[in-house]
């Protein structure tokens, strides 16, 4: 195949009196134009979908939160200013309860899940036979749907469920458990435990990939200097895990702030709002009670929290680059 056949047709058709072959510069310009068109064409489907189902909904969350829009209504949405925000912070105790619960959930789960994940990662990072099998086992809950996991644990948390019969066995009947999910003082804690159980394997793998980027020679050098395993960890492992740590903490925080399924399946926010969360409340108001405008307001507040976390991540990783 000769190069002339690759020249775009408009160029061939262009009358070029005086020149036998089109000048090189014009050919390059034409190639650029076609590259520009093809590039745009290839990115267009993804771009269109992202705009339709991400950018517009985000803008809608902003816009609708200043209106009284309803999901099904004969009237068009009306601008109500900051009414929804005022309502959230002054006239909706369930919202404040949701914000507090979400905060408590995140504050407990972030360090515990990150710490346990690291512990698991260190365990399965050893050169031991069968260690891959343990990695797979610890990861099994992650691939199990959180809906299924929530139902299973709901059954186990019953008054006469597995959790209580286990407690009964190890304390020789000295301590009787409660119906964990029906007790306002234990329900959120119960959800925290199962959430960690389900997701910690994911962060184990993230930590593990971080651990494996640390060169073995550093450990050899440390051992040569007589460092104990704990000293090796604090002087070699931990400094090498900085960017992994930021990533793990941020992903857990954002996921924790979005807590919804466990609550929806297990407690519906109860008992007495002790497990309601921001997302659960947004869905309850914005969808089930059809107050789209108010639901958008709660979503927006949640979004601002996520943005803050993301900005903190930017700040923490900035000096590295």
């Amino acid at each position: 195949m000769t190069t002339s056949s690759s020249i775009p047709t408009p160029l061939l058709a262009a009358p070029e009196p005086g020149a036998a072959a089109p000048p090189r510069r014009r050919r390059i310009a034409a190639a650029r134009r076609s590259e520009g068109r093809s590039g745009l064409a290839m990115v267009a489907p993804a771009l269109l979908l992202l705009v339709l189902f991400l950018v517009i909904p985000v803008l809608l969350a902003f816009g609708l939160s200043f209106t009284n829009a309803r999901l099904i209504s004969p009237n068009p949405p009306r601008f109500v200013g900051l009414d929804n925000f005022v309502r959230a912070f002054t006239a909706d105790p369930a919202f404040l309860r949701s914000a507090i619960n979400t905060f408590v959930f995140a504050v407990v789960i972030v360090p515990v899940q990150a710490g346990l994940g690291l512990l698991l990662a260190v365990l399965v990072n050893q050169k031991l036979r069968g260690v891959t099998m343990f990695r797979v086992i610890f990861f099994v809950p992650v691939v199990t749907s959180i809906v299924v996991v929530s139902i299973l644990w709901k059954f186990m948390y019953q008054k006469d469920g597995l959790v209580n019969s286990f407690i009964d066995t190890i304390t020789f009947g000295a301590w009787q458990g409660t119906a964990w999910l029906n007790n306002p003082s234990t329900a959120l804690g119960a959800i925290i435990v199962l959430s960690i159980w389900q997701a910690v394997g994911f962060h184990m793998l993230i930590w593990l990939s971080g651990l494996q980027t640390i060169p073995e020679e550093l450990y050899e050098a440390a051992r040569m200097d007589g460092a104990t395993p704990w000293q090796q960890f604090t002087n070699v492992t931990w400094p090498g895990l900085r960017s992994t740590m930021v990533f793990v903490l941020v992903t857990i925080t954002i996921a924790a702030l979005g807590l919804f399924v466990q609550v929806d399946v297990m407690t519906q926010g109860g008992p007495v709002n002790s497990t309601t969360t921001l997302v659960y409340h947004a869905v309850r108001k914005g969808y089930r009670e059809m107050e789209t405008g108010y639901g958008a307001t709660i979503s927006l507040i949640f979004f601002v929290l996520v943005l803050i976390v993301a900005l903190v991540q930017r700040f923490l990783t900035r000096e590295k680059d």
């Binding site: 771009l47 992202l50 705009v51 189902f53 991400l54 950018v55 517009i56 909904p57 985000v58 809608l60 969350a61 609708l64 829009a69 999901l71 099904i72 954002i254 702030l257 979005g258 919804f260 997302v279 947004a282 869905v283 914005g286 969808y287 789209t292 639901g295 958008a296 709660i298 979503s299 927006l300 949640f302 979004f303 996520v306 943005l307 993301a310």
Partner: peptide, 22 residues
């Protein structure tokens, strides 16, 4: 745009999106 949309969790846009797709 792609980088900016990376951090948007689906839960934040779920409620406005129901309104939008309807």
């Amino acid at each position: 745009i792609v980088i900016a949309t990376l951090i948007v969790p689906f839960e934040t846009i779920a409620v406005p999106m129901v309104y939008w797709v309807s």
